[in-house]
Amino acid sequence: MSIEQFVARSEGQWRSMRSAHALAFRQFEDVISTIKIERLAINNQDVVDYLAGQSILPDTISSPFQMTWQAESDWEPDDATAVSQGTCILIPIPETERTGQLLRSKGYAESESAVSSYSFLDDGTFILKTAYSQSIAEERIWFLSEHVRCRSSVLRTSEGSGILQTSFSSEVRRIEA
């Protein structure tokens, strides 16, 4: 699979059910999310501005997209009814047909911009590795069918020696009638 194919298959609105195990806190968390993934044009102003801030030429990128999410968790320390939401721009920079970098305006594990490396396994599984300032995240995404995909993640300490959190998500694309 190429990054272009992966973004095309991911486009749309997804309903996600995620179970996470925060080993550091000895807690399990269930999260229900709505995730919207939409492709952006290379000349989209947000993409152009982000690339300019990173000193990256637009002709090196492929299939930029935006991800927006809204999540409800059963474990919010301050407010059990709190809703987490956000948006970020993701910009792939392919190196080969199956590998590259992914610029993220906002990271998954830490709320900071990040540069991740990605690759695809022979079966089409997308692997994303991100080193943040205080942790390292590895995420895997694979499609079970056209409208069902799975995602797993492992969050490690910045040295990579300890596991902080693991999660598994099943995601179903919302089909418009």
Rank of each mutant, 00 (worst) to 15 (best):
E110L: 01
L40A: 13
Q101A: 06
Y118M: 08
N44G: 02
E112G: 00
R104C: 08
P92H: 11
Q54T: 00
T34F: 12
L51Y: 09
I42F: 05
L23G: 00
I61M: 10
Y108K: 07
P92C: 02
W14M: 13
A52C: 01
I61R: 07
S84D: 14
N43W: 05
Q27T: 10
P58V: 03
A20F: 05
Q134Y: 08
G107E: 06
V48Y: 02
D49Q: 12
I89T: 06
L121G: 10
L51S: 03
Q85M: 09
A20N: 11
L23E: 10
D123Y: 13
I136M: 10
Q45G: 00
H21S: 14
M67R: 11
M67E: 14
T87A: 09
Y50V: 04
S19R: 15
L103I: 00
C88G: 00
A41W: 05
I93Q: 08
W75R: 14
R18E: 15
P77W: 01
A22C: 10
R18T: 15
E97M: 06
I56P: 03
S62H: 02
R98G: 03
E38G: 04
E110R: 08
D46C: 00
T87W: 01
T130R: 05
E110C: 01
D74Q: 05
Q27K: 14
A114F: 00
P92Q: 09
E95Y: 01
T99W: 11
A137Q: 15
G107Q: 06
L102V: 08
V31D: 10
S63C: 10
D79V: 03
C88Q: 05
A114M: 03
K106Y: 07
Q66E: 14
A24M: 13
D78P: 00
C88A: 10
V31M: 13
D59M: 07
L23M: 11
S135C: 13
T60G: 00
L23R: 14
Q54Y: 07
S63H: 09
E97C: 02
G86N: 06
I56V: 13
P94N: 11
R15W: 09
D46M: 02
T87G: 05
Q13F: 04
Q27A: 11
S113N: 11
K36T: 15
T99F: 04
S19E: 15
R18L: 10
I35P: 03
E29D: 08
R26Y: 12
Q45P: 02
S117H: 04
P64T: 04
A20Q: 11
T99R: 15
Y50E: 13
S113D: 12
S10G: 03
L103A: 02
W14H: 13
S133Q: 13
S113W: 07
S62D: 08
D30C: 07
A22H: 14
W75T: 06
F126C: 07
